[in-house]
Amino acid sequence: DEIHIHFNGVTIEFRGLTEEAKKALEEAIKRGASEEELKELARRLIK
C-alpha cells in the first residue's frame, strides 16, 4: 500500500501507511502544508 503526493511538480512517495496516516497527510495537504512539513509528518507517521 503506497501513496503518491504530487506537490509543486515533485512526487513524494510513501509506502506502508495506515489509513489514519493517509488521512493525516491528506488533511495536511488540504490546509496547505509545505513539502518539508509533509515529509516530517510522514516520518512521524511511519515510525
Rank of each mutant, 00 (worst) to 15 (best):
D1I: 14
D1Y: 14
D1V: 15
E2F: 15
E2R: 13
E2M: 14
E2N: 10
E2V: 15
E2D: 09
E2P: 11
E2L: 13
E2S: 15
I3S: 06
I3K: 03
I3V: 13
I3Y: 13
I3D: 05
I3W: 15
I3M: 10
H4D: 04
H4E: 07
H4I: 14
H4T: 08
H4N: 06
H4M: 10
H4Y: 11
I5C: 08
I5Y: 06
I5D: 03
I5M: 07
I5W: 09
H6W: 10
H6K: 08
H6Q: 11
H6F: 09
H6I: 14
H6P: 03
F7P: 01
F7A: 05
F7I: 13
F7T: 04
F7D: 04
F7W: 07
F7R: 02
N8Y: 02
N8A: 08
N8V: 05
N8E: 07
G9V: 03
G9E: 05
G9L: 02
G9K: 05
G9S: 04
G9D: 06
G9A: 03
G9I: 02
V10D: 08
V10P: 04
V10I: 12
T11V: 12
T11G: 05
T11I: 13
T11Q: 08
I12P: 03
I12L: 11
I12V: 10
I12A: 04
I12Q: 04
I12D: 05
I12K: 01
I12N: 03
E13M: 11
E13K: 15
E13V: 15
E13W: 13
E13C: 09
F14A: 03
F14W: 08
F14K: 01
F14C: 09
F14V: 08
F14H: 04
R15K: 13
R15F: 11
R15A: 10
R15W: 12
G16F: 09
G16A: 07
G16W: 07
G16V: 05
G16Y: 07
G16K: 08
G16Q: 08
G16E: 10
G16D: 14
G16S: 04
G16T: 06
L17F: 12
L17C: 02
L17A: 06
L17H: 02
L17D: 01
T18P: 11
T18C: 12
T18L: 04
T18D: 11
E19R: 10
E19T: 11
E19L: 11
E19Q: 12
E19W: 11
E19V: 11
E20L: 07
A21I: 15
A21C: 03
A21V: 14
A21E: 08
A21F: 09
A21T: 07
A21H: 14
A21N: 09
K22S: 04
K22V: 13
K22A: 07
K22I: 13
K23H: 11
K23W: 11
K23M: 11
K23A: 14
K23E: 11
K23P: 02
A24D: 05
A24H: 08
A24P: 01
A24R: 07
A24G: 03
A24F: 10
A24L: 15
A24E: 15
A24C: 11
A24Q: 14
L25Q: 00
L25W: 13
L25E: 00
L25I: 10
E26H: 08
E26G: 06
E26K: 10
E26W: 11
E26Y: 13
E26A: 07
E27M: 09
E27K: 07
E27Q: 10
E27C: 07
E27F: 08
E27N: 07
A28D: 00
A28P: 00
A28H: 03
A28L: 06
A28Q: 02
A28F: 05
A28G: 01
A28E: 04
I29K: 06
I29C: 04
I29T: 04
I29D: 01
K30N: 11
K30R: 12
K30I: 09
K30L: 11
K30P: 00
K30H: 10
K30T: 10
R31F: 09
R31V: 04
R31A: 14
R31E: 08
R31C: 03
R31L: 10
R31K: 12
R31I: 05
R31D: 14
R31N: 13
R31G: 10
R31S: 13
G32Y: 02
G32I: 01
G32H: 03
G32V: 01
G32L: 01
G32N: 03
A33I: 12
A33Q: 02
A33D: 11
A33L: 07
A33R: 01
A33M: 10
A33H: 02
A33V: 13
S34N: 10
S34M: 02
S34V: 02
S34D: 08
S34F: 02
S34I: 01
S34A: 05
S34E: 05
S34T: 13
S34H: 03
E35C: 06
E35G: 11
E35S: 08
E35F: 14
E35M: 15
E36N: 08
E36T: 08
E36F: 07
E36S: 09
E36P: 05
E36W: 08
E36R: 06
E37I: 02
E37A: 04
E37M: 04
E37N: 02
E37K: 02
E37S: 03
L38F: 06
L38W: 05
L38S: 00
L38R: 00
L38Q: 00
L38I: 13
K39D: 05
K39E: 08
K39G: 05
K39I: 15
K39N: 07
K39A: 09
K39S: 05
K39R: 12
E40F: 02
E40L: 03
E40C: 02
L41P: 00
L41W: 01
L41G: 00
L41A: 01
L41H: 01
L41K: 00
L41M: 08
A42Y: 15
A42R: 02
A42K: 01
A42W: 15
A42V: 15
A42S: 03
A42M: 15
A42T: 03
A42C: 02
R43I: 14
R43C: 03
R43A: 14
R43K: 12
R43G: 03
R43V: 13
R43D: 15
R44P: 00
R44C: 09
R44H: 13
R44I: 14
R44D: 14
R44G: 04
R44M: 13
L45S: 01
L45W: 07
L45V: 04
L45C: 04
L45A: 02
L45N: 01
L45G: 01
L45P: 01
I46D: 13
I46F: 09
I46A: 02
I46G: 06
I46K: 06
I46S: 07
I46Y: 09
K47A: 15
K47Y: 15
K47P: 14
K47I: 15
